[in-house]
Amino acid sequence: MFSRVLTLFAAGLIALASLGAVPALAQDAASAPPVAAQEAAPAAPAAAVGTETKENPYGLMNLIKNGHAVDQIVLGILLFMSAGSWFITFTKLWDQHKIGKEVREAREVFFKKASLADGVKALPEGSAVRYIAQTAVEAGDHHEGTLTENIDRNTWVSMKVDRAVSEVNAKISSGMGFLATTGSTSPFIGLFGTVWGILNALTAIGVAGQASIDKVAGPVGAALIMTAIGLAVAVPAVLGYNWLLNRNKAVMAQVKAFAGDLHGVLMGSRLVKR
């Protein structure tokens, strides 16, 4: 539980950093004077005493402090989606690593035991492989019931093992839908902020009666910031989704191989007893 909370906190910090990186780069690029102006300007003194850094009136901080409610809502949604994407990516990577390690260790321990009961006890508590093994053993031992007896033991055990494997797959695949949703919708949410900023710019021009730069620069700057942030949220979500999907396939292949070997051992032990 503590690791999940720590991961959530780290994901929030990464989301804040990613959302602020693009506007900061744009602000630095906009504030830098042209090369020709730098060459023509006289050399500045080595140290200016008492100079103050003026806050950019068209940057991200100004948008957060003085922006419209719609702009702030859009930023909040993008921040939530970015933090959720990073949190899911980190937690799923940990779950995949954990299950893959459990399967590798189970192959070295489980199949070397003298009995299935000893093999189950040798597996770590609460692990996915122990859950699958315990489900298979219980299905083989308990095949009673009027309706259940209509299914032969081999099919019954196969059904129970497949269901246990499907539950493990559902566990490590949870949250993938959020990544897919974030990757597909966050650019459009940023685009909505862009459209809203352009609408504000046109409205300011219409009210003022003239297209002065101070009436246009602020809303258009906010619009461009929204577009950049939407893309910055979408790209890591899409990359994380595809990466986790491929890793899930590899991990589940190992889990299914372990379940298949377990089923074969369980059926072979029944034949030996008979």
Rank of each mutant, 00 (worst) to 15 (best):
A164D: 02
D141S: 12
F258S: 03
S82Y: 07
I151M: 09
T182M: 08
R130L: 08
V137Q: 02
T89G: 08
I205S: 07
I172W: 06
D141L: 14
I99L: 13
N62R: 05
L224K: 02
V255M: 06
L6W: 14
A17P: 04
G260W: 01
A201C: 11
D152T: 11
T185H: 07
A223S: 09
T7L: 13
A180V: 06
V103C: 04
G240F: 10
A250P: 02
T181Y: 01
E149F: 06
T135W: 04
I151A: 02
G230Q: 01
N200K: 12
V238F: 08
D118P: 05
A37H: 04
V238S: 04
E108L: 14
D95K: 12
F9I: 15
N66V: 05
F192A: 09
D118H: 12
A46H: 12
S31M: 06
M159W: 11
L239P: 00
V272Q: 11
G260F: 05
H143A: 11
L13I: 15
S85L: 07
K92Q: 15
V168P: 01
F178C: 07
P236L: 08
M159E: 15
V251C: 11
R153A: 14
A128F: 01
K92V: 09
G183W: 02
G177I: 10
I189G: 00
V120H: 03
K256Y: 05
R270E: 10
P236H: 07
S115T: 15
A114I: 13
L224W: 02
T181C: 01
I213R: 13
M176C: 07
E149S: 14
Y131C: 04
G240D: 03
F192W: 09
F192C: 08
D141F: 09
L93W: 14
P187C: 05
V74C: 01
L199T: 12
E167G: 02
A41S: 13
K101Q: 14
A44K: 14
P34K: 11
V22E: 02
G260Y: 05
L8N: 10
V35N: 07
N56S: 10
A133F: 00
F110Y: 10
V161G: 00
N56V: 04
L25R: 06
L239S: 07
A15Y: 01
G264Y: 03
A250F: 08
G193R: 01
I14Y: 09
K256G: 05
P33R: 06
V120A: 11
Q38N: 08
L191T: 11
T148L: 11
F90E: 10
G76V: 10
S3T: 15
K171W: 12
A234R: 00
G119L: 03
G59H: 01
I132Y: 01
E102R: 06
A204N: 11
E144K: 11
P23Y: 01
F258H: 04
M81R: 02
A15F: 00
V238D: 03
M61K: 05
N62T: 13
V251Y: 05
T203K: 14
G100I: 04
A250K: 15
Q38K: 13
A24W: 09
V251H: 03
